[in-house]
Nucleic acid binder design. Structure first.
Length: 491
RNA sequence: CGGGGUAUAGCGCAGCCCGGUUAGCGCGCCUGCUUUGGGAGCAGGAGGUCGUAGGUUCGAAUCCUACUACCCCGACCA
């Protein structure tokens, strides 16, 4: 399969692409910019979904579904929202095709022009707030805590599998609250939830913080985000939570009567993570041998490969393996026994290694004689032979250890590539040569941020929470600053 | 939308400059035998409107023209 696989050193971008394709996660489709998520890739996404979905429900949210299409007029109700998305929406203008009178194929039937054009949702705030208007009259109707799992379309010029595709899958939460404080708290709750998911399930450390004005969601008062550092030294925004204030309530006239019988606008939030998380997960842990998955999100946690020459040997192995498999499954561990005779053991080793399966058990005639099994870790590529009777206690322990170790390794990588810089020269050195996170003073103006971006392609990724106050001078303008912000080149 | 490139078997490529009759190679695929503890070996086999349309020519994958699609680099972005 993947003998011709790029290394990270040779060509990081190529390495990522090869990985996605050869690990059978996704492929480019016939539709420009749109991908096909293959079963193995989708299984990972389904695991992510299941965990996040439970987290949302545990924090009081319910799922619902809103339309794919949004009337064009809705879209223009909130000024900055339109401005932010106008350049990348797909528009439906007609509803019928007809046979081409001049020849082959079908053409758009010009008689079937829509009275009002529809846009394909790039995000659902507008259609949702138009709907909430009818749902909310009283403080008793609040809060509204809804999430939807959906596909959205943003007409990107350049796309990369998972990281940026024209159509992508995500969840978008849209909540309505009676007070500013409550909406604000919701925004924070979700950001913490995302960080929890990233760190404890994806084993990917993230920095939480607030976005600058230029990186803010179109229509939000504040955007909070989690940022992760990828192995090539670039930052990846992995989840966002927006405090929308009363912007959408005002645009869609969503008011409620409070306890004092006064009419007030509703306070709002929205938040989302997308299939981009797949890209983050892939880049966070994988190596030059292929994908490395954290056990908690791996579709297969343990692969069992039998080594046999005869049917008798296979049956003998199967007899040993099945009870162990069952016991592990009873502990909630996903186990696959690959007893196919169409592929050789060596082929299977390479295959599952490339697909990032955390643990592999190999059992052959030698093991049958000795009552042992070979156990191999994907993350460290270590192999050892253990007594078959100790598998059921050993495996949960190892999976946990792998999960922790992946996080620790990523954290150590981030620490190694995080720098405090005080001068423009140091800043350039980090951004252009070393790669990674640069904590630097910034004068707080969009103007300076823009200039830094023009010169270096680096942006303020985030102003971290609980940021220590520290007097300093902006690396570019030299103006006074009271805290360091996180700069990096980003995906 | 600017700048560059590519289009030949499922995938990756050669052939094109210098036109010539049956268009090759590697991987993969199929069949058989031998193999199986790190991507097996041998033998046989299947698979192609050479991106599309037109032109030049006795003859076009090869030369010319137009078109289309895709890829890379820039401006936009979860």
């Amino acid at each position: 399969m993947a003998k011709d696989f790029s290394t990270r050193e040779e060509n990081y971008a190529q390495w990522y692409n090869d990985l996605v394709i050869k690990a059978d996660l996704a492929e480019n489709s016939s539709v420009r910019g749109c991908m096909v998520i293959k079963p193995y890739g989708f299984a990972i996404w389904e695991k992510m979904q299941a965990v996040l979905d439970k987290m949302f429900k545990d924090t009081g949210h319910s799922n619902a579904y809103f339309p794919l299409f949004i009337p064009k007029s809705f879209f223009s109700r909130e000024a900055s929202h339109v401005e932010g998305f106008a350049k990348e929406v797909a528009i439906v203008t007609h509803y019928r095709l007809k046979n081409d009178p001049n020849g082959s194929g079908v053409i758009v039937d010009e008689d079937a022009k829509l009275e009002e054009e529809l846009i394909v949702r790039p995000t659902s705030e507008t259609i949702i707030w138009d709907t909430y208007k009818n749902w909310i009259q009283s403080y008793r109707d609040l809060p509204v805590l809804i999430n939807q799992w959906a596909n959205v379309v943003r007409w990107e010029m350049r796309t990369r599998l998972f990281l940026r595709t024209t159509e992508f899958l995500w969840q978008e939460g849209h909540t309505a609250h009676s007070t500013r404080d409550e909406a604000f708290a919701e925004t924070k709750t979700i950001l913490d939830l995302y960080a929890d998911f990233a760190e404890n399930w994806m084993a990917m450390p993230v920095v939480k913080g607030i976005k600058t004005a230029s990186e803010r969601f179109a229509g939000a008062l504040d955007t909070y985000a989690i940022e992760a550092l990828m192995q090539d030294g670039k930052a990846l925004q992995s989840g966002t939570s927006h405090f929308l204030g009363q912007n959408f309530a005002k645009a869609f006239d969503v008011k409620f009567l409070n306890k004092e019988n006064q009419l007030e606008y509703v306070w709002a939030t929205s938040w989302g993570v997308s299939t981009r998380l797949m890209g983050a997960l892939i880049m966070a842990h994988s190596d030059d041998q292929g994908l490395v998955l954290p056990p908690k999100l791996a579709p297969i946690e343990v692969i069992i490969v039998p080594v046999f020459k005869s049917d008798e040997q296979l049956s003998a192995i199967t007899e040993k393996v099945l009870p162990v498999k069952k016991e592990l499954e009873e502990k909630g561990i996903s186990v696959k026994f690959d007893n196919r005779e169409t592929h050789k053991p060596g082929w299977k080793f390479a295959e599952y290694e490339f697909k990032g399966v955390p643990l592999r058990l190999t059992i052959g005639p030698r093991d049958l004689e000795n009552g042992t099994v070979e156990i191999a870790r994907r993350d460290t590529l270590e192999k050892k032979v253990i007594d078959i009777s100790s598998i059921v206690t050993e495996i949960p322990f190892l999976l946990e250890e792998i999960q922790c170790s992946l996080f620790e390794k990523s954290l150590a990588f981030r620490k190694k590539h995080t720098y405090n810089v005080d001068t423009w020269e140091e800043f350039l050195d980090v951004i252009e040569n070393k790669g990674g996170f640069a904590y630097a003073h910034w004068d707080g103006t969009s103007d300076t941020e823009e200039k830094i971006k023009e010169k270096t392609k680096a942006t303020v990724r985030i102003i971290p929470f609980n940021n220590p106050k520290e007097e300093g001078r902006c690396i570019l303008s030299g103006k006074p600053s009271s805290e360091r912000v996180l700069f990096a080149r980003a995906y």
